[in-house]
Amino acid sequence: MQAIRRILVYIDGSGESYSAVRLSVVLARSMGAELFALAVVNTRALGELVQAHIFLEAEREEYRRDLEGDVERYVNRVRELGRKKGVAVTAESVSGAVCEEIRNAVARHGADLLVLGEVAEVRSRREELAAETERAARMVPCSVLIAKDEDRIDDLYEAL
């Protein structure tokens, strides 16, 4: 029985999330698992900013376009990281709330492992409460792997 068949990795453009991608590529290749990657245009945050009157409606649209451009770059980079090591990555971008979209993607792809980048050292109680990916880790029904030790992950990836 194959322990891990489908891996989903969440990418937000941070260095930590690219480490998660590298580790996922290593795992996918060594376990023969399918690899999916998800990037999210956080439209919920944009909506909250309009609601809070920090953003004007026109700004919401402008920043949404910016974010769409950002996630397109993330997704292309993930595909490239997979391609370099001969691992096909099904990468997609969606719009919505990060936590919910991660959970939806886990269900949609039947992922049995979610890989997340390391969350930076928590320096405030408020930050801890606000961390979307930590909420996702608690809510998804599958196993969750937090990628840590960037140097070791880089070594593993380069050695593939």
Partner: peptide
């Protein structure tokens, strides 16, 4: 900068929450 919209929105969202 224009290519850092993600962190920009994250920061503004944190302020919205703090406020």
């Amino acid at each position: 900068p224009p290519d850092k919209s993600g962190p920009h929105i994250q920061a503004l969202s944190e302020i919205a929450r703090l406020s």
